[in-house]
Nucleic acid binder design. Structure first.
Length: 245
DNA sequence: GTTAATGTTTCACC
DNA sequence: CGGTGAAACATTAA
């Protein structure tokens, strides 16, 4: 389920219901990390996302849901897997499975900084450039997955954006020209919104240029290796993507 | 039955 | 303490 754009889709689906500051009339599920009574009869002020987090915002606290690798949700439907957290409103019900649920004290606006969220209109690429430069020795394939810098980027966006920017995943930050870093950041954001559009259309997979592919669009063989200290599968084309060193 | 996967946290060890 | 890395958690499709 989980890269940033997929969480945006979840938020849009829920916003479409539509619920206007709905009161939670029942809380179900086996969640143990929060006290469920805390939510009962509370009114949701807003649903938001930050990176891969789905946020249910109340006046003085925030429920933060992370779908991890296998998390799912169903709106007005249920499934056999044990329910982690179910929220029932007057007419609608939202059910979360296999996810991490946390309660953070305080209003979301004071808890989060949306300038690190690739899907946010507050996204700040200058700040990202600055943070990147503070990590000159990092491999680009690792730092793209750093949620403190690129909240919402997952392994698919990492691979596809690196291919679009024509950068080899093992290039180090210090070796990348500034123009190339800027290009990459633009590619990350642009691909994330393409991801959103294509996922909604059901055409995401057919648009993959390197992820899970055997050859790149130019017909070169794709290499698949666990690279960097994150050890995530990395798909790349040594012909199209230049290694800066 | 086995395998791999869109992710993150925790713990052991140097 | 910092870095590394393995293990842990959990689901489903191929």
């Amino acid at each position: 389920m989980p890269e940033g754009p997929s969480i945006v889709i979840l938020k849009e689906l829920i916003d479409d219901l539509p619920l206007h500051k709905p009161e939670i009339i029942e809380v179900s599920g086996n969640v143990k990390t929060i006290a469920k009574d805390r939510l009962l009869h509370q009114k949701v002020q807003e649903f938001r996302t930050l990176g891969k987090h789905f946020l249910i915002c109340f006046n003085d606290f925030t429920i933060q849901i992370h779908l991890m690798l296998f998390g799912t949700y169903l709106i007005n439907d249920t499934k056999k897997t044990p329910l982690k957290l179910g929220l029932t409103f007057k007419k609608d019900q939202i059910n979360f499975y296999t996810c991490k649920v946390d309660l953070l004290e305080g209003n979301a606006k004071d808890l989060y900084d949306w300038s690190i969220d690739i899907m946010s209109d507050q996204w700040d690429d200058k700040q990202a450039i600055k943070t990147l430069k503070e990590n000159p020795e990092s491999h680009i394939c690792d730092i793209l997955l750093d949620q403190h810098i690129f909240a919402g980027v997952g392994n698919i966006i990492k691979n596809e954006a690196l291919y679009r920017a024509k950068i080899h995943p093992l290039s180090k930050i210090k070796d990348l020209p500034l123009a190339k870093i800027k290009l990459l950041i633009k590619a990350v954001v642009a691909y994330s919104f393409d991801f959103l559009k294509w996922r909604k259309e059901g055409t995401l997979i057919k648009h993959w240029e390197v992820y899970n592919q055997k050859t790149c669009p130019k017909g070169h063989p794709i290499e698949k290796k666990e690279l960097g200290k994150t050890h995530r599968q990395t798909y790349y084309c040594s012909n199209c993507q230049k290694k800066y060193s």
